[in-house]
């Protein structure tokens, strides 16, 4: 069990955005976090990566909470934010060095991986450029490269598909697949439901700070027999019915 979220109540200020969220991710599993804008997806992610402190409840990664060992907890996470966040003072090469340094990676090994990824995303000749001047899709690729050279157990990916070209989306899905086969877990929030339907092992449907439904696509279909076949139909009927 890589990630276990238990009775999580949390949010940004006094008012809880998340009201009792429960779900887990097993080793080698890709879980899709689905919900409308404002449903609490990003808040959930911010709690998992340790930016927010839960009001109550617990989050465990491989049975470790952040309070037991901050560095040990964070070492297990790699994060790809929704809108790419880069250091405007650092070149692409230096972003990779930052990651190597912060995660205490083996320099040669990490660079081997990085070069492979850079080539895949056609960034290998831009090492000395500033990602701050890149287009959104290219900055997104920088985020992906930095995240996938770490040895994290849990990849937290916030809406990865918008802004990426189709080739890069395909490459990203392959990378995720490879990590899954290595036994790593992935939590991915997205609005692109048909891609999610194809690739995710399970889904967590968030609505208004609650987990409305959790399970694989067959379980969802059984729970909403009238809604239709696709994840999109199921989700629409759930979201509209929830009002």
């Amino acid at each position: 069990m890589t990630l276990k979220v238990t009775d999580l109540v949390g949010g940004y200020s006094q008012v809880p955005v998340l009201k009792n969220v429960n779900f887990d991710i097993k080793d080698g599993e890709l879980v899709g976090l689905i919900g409308l804008n404002g449903a609490g997806k990003s808040t959930t992610i911010n709690h998992i990566i340790g930016l927010l402190k839960p009001f109550s409840g617990s989050i465990k990664i491989n049975d470790l909470t952040i309070n037991e060992d901050v560095d040990g907890y964070k070492k297990q996470i790699a994060y790809i934010p929704e809108s790419p966040i880069v250091y405007k003072e650092l070149t692409l090469k230096e972003h990779i060095e930052m990651t190597i340094m912060a995660y205490n990676l083996d320099v040669d090994l990490a660079w081997n991986k990085a070069n492979e990824l850079l080539k895949m995303f056609r960034l290998e000749n831009k090492l000395d450029w500033f990602p701050d001047n890149f287009s959104k899709g290219m900055r997104q690729k920088v985020m992906i490269v930095c995240a996938f050279i770490t040895d994290a157990d849990l990849y937290v990916i916030d809406e990865p598909f918008l802004g990426l070209d189709p080739l890069a989306v395909d490459d990203l899905l392959n990378l995720i697949d490879k990590k899954k086969r290595e036994g790593k877990s992935i939590l991915m929030s997205t609005h692109v439901l048909d891609t999610a339907e194809k690739f995710c092992d399970r889904f967590v449907l968030l609505h208004d700070g609650h987990v409305r439904m959790e399970g694989n696509i067959d379980e969802l279909r059984n729970a909403f027999p009238d809604a239709g076949e696709s994840l999109n139909d199921i989700y629409l009927s759930l979201a509209k019915g929830g009002e």
Partner: peptide, 14 residues
Amino acid sequence: HFYDNVFVHIYPIN
């Protein structure tokens, strides 16, 4: 200067 960059909070560093 780097306070608003999430990554400095996510890195497993002291």
